[in-house]
Design a protein around this nucleic acid. Structure first.
Lengths: 357, 357
DNA sequence: CACGGCACGGAAACCGGTGTCATTTGACGG
DNA sequence: CCGTCAAATGACACCGGTTTCCGTGCCGTG
């Protein structure tokens, strides 16, 4: 039973001094000459309040700078006004982008964002997430890969009656609860690009197999190449971890092969950066000796030299859209602004790809 | 009065189904055969409870998986169990690093982290932050540059009786509330490094003047150079914005000078990456024609080519230390593990610096 | 035997809102 | 003028804890 203890003092003068106490619902009720309940109705936009009454109450609220206490409301509602972001992605760049998007949507909504990293490999993973959601009585959560693919986790969220939106490379749930990134399509586009340049020995450095995206991106690549009559050979498929270091290691292995690939497609830009480093160490020139294509089109892609060709994913928008969907679940359909939440990958062609020698 | 409205339904069946209701303090009291008050005492680690009673109650709590409701406790305490991170840094890499550090400390403490970006240039900036802190009744906040340097903001936090820790380049408050990064020392070390290599025409691309660190880093650079009898000339000082694009623009301007600098020190690594791009466009080779030193030693520094020499700041630890200090404020001094929270900058020397021709 | 500190108990109020259900108000038809 | 019915509002318990303000055994001490 861990618990925050307020430096125990059973009955003591809690200092505090002359804090101008904030107005409460009772104050407003008294001043307006109505009951608490009516104030509550106004707070919650009940249609059963006379317009004049409502306006008058609004005026009083404004004058006193009154804002209902989220904690008290939450206690009664059995629900807080916090949105959670649950993630286990080893790539900080990805995380911060999604987060920015969520914050954009959250900022104008009155909710706040609680971030919660986790590790699916931990023994108590599910319990830990359950505790997080249950204790905070989260209003909803955004799940990013790979936790977004965890059906056990989703089952818990359903049990807890906690709304969620999953960001994933393929659809795993009702459309209402999904932001689908169609990774395979993006990878296929990269494949077509490489094939058009004349590459036939194409390698793939995947992310960890626990990420659905790893498989989707490989599948897309393989299918895109197959369209052009090219085979993605098993010997050219190697498993990374979505980290820079793993990219270096995998690229090293590929470049050391008797018949090394002429192009490497990586599961994300972090690993592509690793390929750059390994190539330099091996005296292999990009793009002359080796073409490289990344995935995500993170800010880093344009900063590398040569600038990295990369499958473009609107990661930030994905976060924004996910949060908007969540917030929409709380908005009456009538007031919901219809907005499109389609995510389509593209390909940003830069200097890291060229025809093989 | 913006407010989350639960799709109004005054009296409706809120679905929910057969949710196994969680145990409350009353259940525990009944089962333990004691009063609520005693349970409350146990929750808050009151010393006025017999050991056996406490153990027995703990056992019952454990069996029922009881966890006191933070919302209810918060309502009574007039305080939540959330820690806020307030930032306005334009560099996402910096933000995500601090955040990771905070999360490390927070994870094992029972608190949760709410992130709150903001913009000091906004008209309602102070009110907005006040609302954030007041509404959430934050347990405490971590302030990062440049909002950490805003005394008006701090005044509000004091008024709201909200504990805070400021991360800044110089001490601005009592030691208990500061994580000081001594940016000037780091910059001075970079200056000595460049001087030792024989550079005399050294330029500085600063961050925005609203960041104290911009001035500190310049000061440190100037002083370090002065030690070696070198002057940091005004014409070589140029103002960036801590962003990649600003780095490109500033470097372009510097390289176009009649007598361009032989070395550029940038306020952060993002801008250093911009210098790389501008140098390439101008046909200037790093480090042969131009030495570059960054600040932060972000992961990107090692990925650039040539790898970037950079002043090393333990950004992640800064976040961790800040959060630990905050949490310490809630821990009785007796139980506080004494830990050192010193931050010392260093210099990671890599391939982007060499003697001028 | 009086006294004081420890370890609790009990009832009620409180924190600041919401849900339930009853009651009042006003407009309208007869 | 009265009955009716929907609209508008109120009284009261409740959400899950904490605090207040007493009490009461129990035990050790002088």
């Amino acid at each position: 039973m861990t618990s925050r203890r307020p430096d125990y003092e059973e009955e003591a003068d809690r200092g505090g001094g002359a804090l101008r106490k904030r107005a409460t619902i009772n104050d407003i009720a008294r001043l307006a000459g109505v009951s608490k309940k009516t104030i509550s109705r106004v707070i919650n936009d009940s249609p059963f309040v006379k317009v004049e009454t409502r306006d008058k109450i609004h005026a009083i609220m404004k004058e006193l700078g009154y804002r209902p206490d989220p904690q008290a409301r939450g206690l009664a509602f059995r629900r807080s006004f916090l949105i959670g972001m649950i993630y286990d992605n080893p790539n900080p760049q990805y995380v911060v982008n999604v987060q920015q998007g969520i914050l954009e949507a959250v900022r104008e909504s009155g909710f706040e964002l609680v971030v919660h990293p986790c590790n699916r490999a931990d023994a108590g993973f599910l319990d830990q997430v359950r505790t997080f959601v249950e204790q905070l009585k989260l209003f909803g959560v955004v799940l990013t890969p790979s936790v977004s693919e965890d059906d056990d986790l989703v089952a818990i969220l359903r049990e807890l009656d906690c709304p969620y939106v999953r960001v994933a490379s393929v659809s795993l749930d009702e459309a209402e609860r999904m932001i689908v990134t169609h990774d395979a399509d993006g990878a296929a586009e990269a494949a077509r690009h490489l094939a058009a340049l004349g590459h036939t020995r194409v390698a793939f450095i995947s992310g960890p197999p626990s990420f659905r995206s790893s498989h989707e991106r490989r599948r897309g690549l393989a299918e895109g190449l197959a369209e052009q009559g090219i085979t993605l050979e098993d010997r050219y498929i190697i498993e990374g971890a979505y980290t820079f270091d793993s990219g270096v290691a995998c690229a090293r292995a590929l470049l050391a092969m008797d018949e090394p690939p002429t192009a490497i497609f990586t599961g994300n830009d972090e690993m592509a950066a690793g390929v750059y480093t390994a190539a330099r160490d091996a005296g292999v020139s990009i793009p002359d000796d080796l073409s490289v294509v990344g995935f995500d089109d993170s800010p880093m892609a344009a900063r590398l030299w040569p600038p990295l060709t990369s499958v473009k994913l609107p990661i930030r928008n994905m976060g924004r859209f996910a949060a908007e969907k969540l917030i929409d679940m709380a908005t009456p359909e009538s007031e919901r602004r219809t907005r499109s939440h389609q995510v389509e990958p593209g390909l940003a062609v830069r200097g890291s790809t060229a025809s093989p020698r």
